[in-house]
C-alpha cells in the first residue's frame, strides 16, 4: 500500500489562460464530456438504423444475428468491463500519488484493450471464413434480402468504428503511460489521467450498447 515514502505530490500546473487551478480542472473535464457527447451522437445514428431495421424486418435481421459470434462478443464485453476496472484503479492511484501502481494499472488496461482487438480480429476472420461479408467480391452465404445485408453492413461499420476508437485509445494510453513514467508528471498533469479515464470508460460504454443492440436483441 502507498505510504508516505512512495506517494508523490499530486497537482496540476496552472496554464496562463486560467485564473485558478480548480477552473482549469473543471475545464478539462467538461471539455472531455463535450467531446464524448459528440462521439455518442456519431454512434447513435448507427444504433438507430440497426434498431429500426430490427423492428421493420425482424425475420431478416434475426437471420443475420444468429450467425454473429455471441460468445466472442460476450467475452469481449467482459474484457472491456475489466479494463474499465483497471482504468478506475489507475485513476484512484494517481490521486494518491502512487505512480508505480498507476503505471501498472494503465499497462493492464492497454493489454486488455489489445486482447479485445485480437478477439475481434479473430471474430472477423471467422466471419470471413463463413462468407458473411456481403461487400467483398467473394461468395456471400447469408440471406439475399436487402435488410439482412444492410444489417450486416451496419454491423461491420459500427464494430469497425468502435475498433478504430479502441486502437486510438490504446495508442493514446501507451503514450500517456510513457509520459507518466517520467518524474514530476503527477505534480504537473495529474488531471490528464482523469480526463483520459473518461474517454476509456466511454469506449467501454459504446461496446456495452453495441453488444445488446447488434448481438443479443431478438436472437
Amino acid at each position: 500500500m502507498p505510504d508516505a515514502v512512495t506517494a508523490e505530490a499530486v497537482d496540476i500546473e496552472l496554464a496562463e489562460q486560467f485564473v485558478t487551478k480548480e477552473q482549469q480542472r473543471d475545464v478539462g473535464t467538461l471539455g472531455m464530456w463535450a467531446w464524448l457527447v459528440t462521439e455518442l451522437l456519431l454512434f447513435a445514428g448507427l444504433f438507430l438504423c440497426a434498431l429500426i431495421l430490427r423492428i421493420q424486418f425482424p425475420a431478416d435481421v434475426t437471420l443475420a444475428t444468429t450467425h454473429l459470434k455471441f460468445w466472442i462478443g460476450a467475452t469481449n464485453t467482459a474484457v472491456l468491463i475489466c479494463s474499465s476496472l483497471t482504468m478506475s484503479g489507475a485513476i484512484v492511484l494517481s490521486r494518491l500519488g502512487w505512480r508505480r501502481g498507476m503505471l501498472g494499472c494503465m499497462l493492464a488496461t492497454a493489454c486488455l484493450g489489445t486482447l479485445f482487438l485480437v478477439l475481434k480480429g479473430y471474430e472477423y476472420y471467422q466471419d470471413y471464413d463463413e462468407n458473411m461479408m456481403p461487400f467483398l467480391a467473394r461468395p456471400y452465404a447469408l440471406g439475399a434480402h436487402p435488410s439482412t445485408r444492410l444489417f450486416l453492413d451496419i454491423y461491420y461499420v459500427t464494430t469497425g468504428l468502435h475498433g478504430v476508437h479502441l486502437i486510438t485509445g490504446v495508442s493514446i494510453l501507451l503514450v500517456l503511460t510513457w509520459q507518466a513514467s517520467r518524474p514530476r508528471f503527477l505534480q504537473m498533469h495529474q488531471n490528464r489521467i482523469e480526463i483520459y479515464g473518461l474517454y476509456w470508460h466511454f469506449i467501454d460504454l459504446i461496446w456495452i450498447i453495441v453488444f445488446p443492440v447488434l448481438y443479443v436483441l431478438n436472437r
Binding site: 456481403p134 461487400f135 434480402h145 436487402p146 435488410s147 439482412t148 445485408r149 444492410l150 453492413d153 451496419i154 461491420y156 461499420v157
Partner: peptide, 11 residues
C-alpha cells in the same frame, strides 16, 4: 458496403 444504394441492399 451497401447502405444507401438499393442495388447493394441499401436505402
Amino acid at each position: 458496403i451497401g447502405v444507401f444504394d438499393p442495388k447493394l441492399g441499401g436505402d
